[in-house]
Design a protein around this nucleic acid. Structure first.
Lengths: 198, 198
DNA sequence: CCGCTTAAGTTAACGGTGTTCACATAAGGG
DNA sequence: CCCTTATGTGAACACCGTTAACTTAAGCGG
């Protein structure tokens, strides 16, 4: 197996080897302690050691780079939730675990999480990242619906799913914005699916 | 009663009369169909008919203007919630009404709402707008706690309050980000305090 | 192996931004 | 009435996103 990307071709001079991957990687690194709007295209290029206009060979504009970063974030969130569920089982405990993973992901990656959920309102929800979006979010939705669909009707189950998502997302956002001073115990207490069943 | 502000002194030439108020007013107008980061200081000054540097007599920097706008938004949200509760009574129906008002405010003022809840993470939660913050948010929190504190203990009541806030806030944010296609009926269905009582 | 096409870099420039500085003007109190 | 102070102006600085024209490297057909 040959990886033709950044690994083997570190710096062969004029050509980089795999910019785009490097740009996304550096972008994620900068997002660790910054909001996305505070990251400059030129600054990012400088950090990679490349001219600013070089990025335009791989992204049509800054917005495209943002979308690429958001997509990577959604993939990682989906993975974190999948891991949590795999570890916690398929019952209600496992479902609560996915919720905790959701919130924990937001706290661990504040800049990235904010970026993921800041699709431009002018773009009428038809960006290319909808597919990935569903993958991450429908997992939570499906699990929630399956969890209670046997006890109540499917309509009430979907309502439960929506409530669960809104609760967990709202908690994550409020924690990120420092509206709530939240320790781990509080998070565990708030995220309790039993408190949502009708 | 004499209003010395923008009303009577519209344009007396070199001096504006009451910039700062005019800047905030124009800022709120621009926020009606724009995100805050897409509003330029110079553009705003241009819209008022004043030079960009004139704004620096009233705001130390752009961030201060943003905070002023956020504060005004919090005042308006508090008012909207107060009105809703006054109209809906003090029982559970009134409480649900404040939740609906919260979401409706977000939908009616997307740019402003996003601004209100985007305090810089670098600022360690000690901006001057904490007071107003409490005023708007503690209203929801207090009402929630009072609503159920007689039925359950005060600890469980506070947990209920936190869940209610997170649910409503998460719903608002998800609707704003177009992650949920929400009609009014759906909002009413999701916001139902009965589904949260332990 | 050579030459040509094309992908992927470069520098220079344009307009726009936030911010600062020196200066100009209006308002108001001694 | 003058002098202070608040409030405006315009020019300048450094930075930004984006584009254009140019240069270099890679790959492929003959």
């Amino acid at each position: 197996m040959i990886t033709v990307s950044t690994l083997d071709a570190a710096k062969r001079g004029y050509h980089h080897g795999d910019l785009r991957s490097a740009a996304i990687e550096e972008g994620l690194r900068l997002l660790e302690d910054r909001v996305v709007d505070d990251i400059g295209l030129r600054e990012l290029a400088r950090a990679i050691g490349v001219s600013a206009s070089a990025l335009y060979r791989h992204f049509p504009d800054k917005e495209a780079l943002r979308q690429a970063l958001a997509e990577e974030g959604l993939v990682r969130l989906a993975k974190a939730q999948g891991d949590a569920q795999a570890h916690g089982g398929s019952g209600m405990d496992g479902f609560n675990a996915t919720g905790r993973a959701y919130v924990q992901f937001a706290l661990d990656n504040p800049g990235l999480f904010r970026l993921m959920f800041s699709s431009l309102p002018t773009v009428d929800a038809l960006g290319g990242l909808e597919g990935k979006h569903d993958e991450a979010m429908q997992l939570l939705q499906r699990n929630a619906a399956e969890l209670v669909s046997c006890d109540v009707g499917p309509a009430a189950a979907q309502l439960f799913a929506l409530r669960a998502w809104a609760l967990v997302h709202g908690l994550a956002v409020l924690l990120l914005d420092k509206q709530i001073a939240g320790n781990a115990d509080l998070i565990d207490a708030v995220i309790d699916a039993k408190a949502l069943v009708p």
